[in-house]
Design a protein around this nucleic acid. Structure first.
Lengths: 306, 306
DNA sequence: CTTTTTGATAGATAAAAGCTATCAAGTCCA
DNA sequence: TGGACTTGATAGCTTTTATCTATCAAAAAG
C-alpha cells in the first residue's frame, strides 16, 4: 500500500515535471523524492514516470493515479480541518436524554437562552423511561441526561442542577383548595395518588405519605403526570406533582389547583449525568453552569444547586 | 497529518469497539494499536475514543472521522486496483500521432484487425504536421507516432514498418496514361508537382526530379494530397503520390490515373516512433510486430520492413 | 570543451512502527 | 468475597522506514 507521503511526491512531480522542484515543494531532498517515487512504483508494480534528463513525463497510468491521489490528499486535509473545527467546545451535537416527567416542561424554558449564548449548539433530544435512558447513556447511544438524582450506575457521574419541589394538587372544590399552602398535617387521612414505581417521584411521594399518615393510593397508579392530573380533577384523590409540570400544565387548569407545602416541601433533585469515561466532561460542566445561570433568572419555581 | 495505517486502526476500532479485536483485524498487537490511536488523537488534537474497561465508545467526532477514513481507504484500494489492472500490456490508452498524408489512408486498414486481436486497445489519434507531431511526442502529449523515417530528433527511437512507393499520377488523357508503368526517362521534361517543403514527400520528389531531369513545379505547391490530385486533374502537371493514398482516393477517380514506376520506385519509409525514455518500448515493439503481420495480409500495396 | 544541472545510488542517521513484558483496573465466576 | 481472567496503557527494546549527505554518470547549457 502506498503512503500518503509518496502520493504527495507523485502529485508534486505531476505538477512540476521536475524532480528537484517537486522535492523543494515537499520540503525534502531530491534523492528522497526520487527514492520514494521508485518505492511507490515498486509497491504498485507499474511505472508511473518516464525519466530523462531532458524532461520528465508521467505515464498515462501515472497521470490517472496522480489525479486520484490529489483527491485522497484533499480528503485527508478535510479530515484534519474537521478535527480542528471540532476542538471548539459545544460544536459537536449533544445527544440528550430526559425522563418523560421532565423533558417537555423543562427544556423549553432553557433552550432559547442556551441557543442565544451558544449559536452552534446542536441538541438531539430523546425522552424515555429512566432505566432505558441510563442504559443508552451507558452504551454510548446518548451523551448526556437530564435526570433525577441520585443515579445508581457506578460508571456515570452527575452534577446537580436544581431542586424541584412537589406541589399538592387537589380538585378546585376540595377544602384544602381554599388554603394558600398546605401543612403536612392537613394531608392526614387524604388519598394520595402517585406515578407507578420505577419513578423517583414514586419513592418521594411514598416516603412523605408514610411520614405524615396519608394514604398512598394502590388502586390507581398514573402512567403519566397528565393522567394523575385528570384523576385529581375527577375527585379520585390528591396528588403531588413537580413544580415545572404545574407551571406548564396546571396553572391554567380550572378543575384543579396546586398549593405549595409548608416547611421543607418534598422535592426531587434534577441533575446532568454523563459517563465517567466521557472526554466531554469539562464541556458538560461548563454547560451545567450556563444552565444554572439561565434557571436563576428564568425559572423561579426551582432552587439552584451546585 | 495522520497516516493511512492510523486511519485503518480507527476504522477497525469503530467497527469492533474492542482494542484487542481491532488489533487482530489489523494484524498488529494491541499495544501497537492503542499507541497509534493515541498518536492519531495527538496529531488531530481531539479525542476520538472514550476508553473504559467496560466498553469503548467513539466520540461524535471520532465517528465522523472514522466514516471519512473509510472513504479514504476505499479510494486507496481503488488506486491499487487501478495499478494492478494497468500492468497488462496495451490496456492503457495510446495517444497516436500521424502525418496528414498517411493517417486516414492507413489506419482504417489496420485498426479493425488490431482491435480484433486486442479488444482492450484504446487509441487516441491526432493528425498533424510532422514538426508539430514530433514536438508533441517530445513533450509527452503523444505516446507514439506513425511517421516517415528517418526522424531527426535524438531522444526519439523508431522501428520501420513498411516501404510505401510513390505512384505517378497523370490526367486520364495524358499520353503516359496509356502505359501500364512509367520509366524514369518518360518523365523527362514533365512538370511534377509536390507538397510544400516540410514534408518528407517533398524531399523525395525533389531528389527524383533532379535525378531524371523532370521539372519540379515551383508555381504551385500542394497543401494536401487532395489538392495535388485536383491540380493533376486540371492538367497543371503530374505528381507522385503515395500508394496508400492512391488506393484510397485515386483508384476510383476517372479524371486521373496512377501508374507505378519501373525499377526501384521512389518510396517513403513509414515507421513507429516513440521517446527513448518511454517505459512502454516493449509494448510498442510488440504492437509493431502485430501491425506488420496485419499489413502482410491486408495491404499488398506496401512492402513490410523489419 | 568546460561548467552546470539532472535523476540515481550508496552509506549513514534519525524517526517511526512494531514487538514483548508488564502494569493497574475492572469484570467474571465459583 | 476472593481469585482468575480480561481490558487498555506504559516502558523499553528491536526492526523497519524515511531521510540525510556525498557522490555518481549523463545530458544540457554556455
Amino acid at each position: 500500500m502506498p503512503t500518503l507521503q509518496q502520493l504527495r511526491y507523485l502529485v508534486a512531480l505531476s505538477e512540476t515535471l521536475h524532480f528537484r522542484r517537486a522535492a523543494e515543494e515537499c520540503h525534502v531532498t531530491q534523492p528522497t523524492l526520487s527514492a520514494q517515487l521508485k518505492e511507490l512504483e515498486a509497491r504498485l508494480g507499474v511505472p508511473l514516470v518516464e525519466r530523462s534528463r531532458a524532461k520528465v513525463v508521467l505515464t498515462p497510468l501515472g497521470r490517472d493515479i496522480a489525479a486520484r491521489a490529489k483527491g485522497v490528499l484533499r480528503d485527508m486535509t478535510e479530515i484534519v480541518e474537521l478535527a480542528r473545527q471540532g476542538q471548539a467546545p459545544l460544536t459537536a451535537t449533544i445527544r440528550v436524554g430526559v425522563v418523560q416527567s421532565l423533558g417537555s416542561y423543562f427544556l423549553p424554558l432553557i433552550v432559547p437562552q442556551l441557543r442565544q449564548r451558544h449559536p452552534g449548539l446542536k441538541l438531539y433530544v430523546r425522552e424515555g423511561l429512566p432505566r432505558a435512558l441510563t442504559g443508552q447513556l451507558d452504551d454510548g447511544a446518548l451523551d448526556l441526561l437530564f435526570f433525577p438524582l441520585p443515579v445508581p450506575e457506578r460508571n456515570l457521574v452527575a452534577t446537580r442542577l436544581f431542586r424541584e419541589p412537589l406541589l399538592v394538587v387537589a380538585p378546585h372544590d376540595h377544602p384544602l383548595a381554599a388554603q394558600p399552602d398546605i401543612a403536612p398535617a392537613d394531608l392526614r387521612g387524604e388519598t394520595i395518588m402517585a406515578l407507578e414505581p420505577g419513578h423517583q417521584l414514586y419513592n418521594q411521594v411514598r416516603q412523605l405519605t408514610e411520614a405524615i399518615g396519608a394514604d398512598l393510593s394502590h388502586d390507581y397508579e398514573g402512567t403519566s403526570l397528565d393522567t394523575l392530573r385528570q384523576m385529581v380533577a375527577m375527585g379520585m384523590g390528591l396528588s403531588l406533582l413537580p413544580a415545572l409540570y404545574v407551571r406548564s400544565e396546571v396553572a391554567r387548569e380550572t378543575l384543579v389547583v396546586a398549593r405549595p407545602m409548608q416547611g421543607t416541601p418534598p422535592a426531587r433533585i434534577i441533575g446532568m449525568v454523563w459517563r465517567k469515561s466521557s472526554v466531554r466532561a469539562a464541556e458538560f460542566s461548563a454547560l451545567a453552569d450556563t444552565i444554572r445561570d439561565i434557571i436563576a433568572t428564568e425559572v423561579p419555581e426551582v432552587a439552584i444547586m451546585r
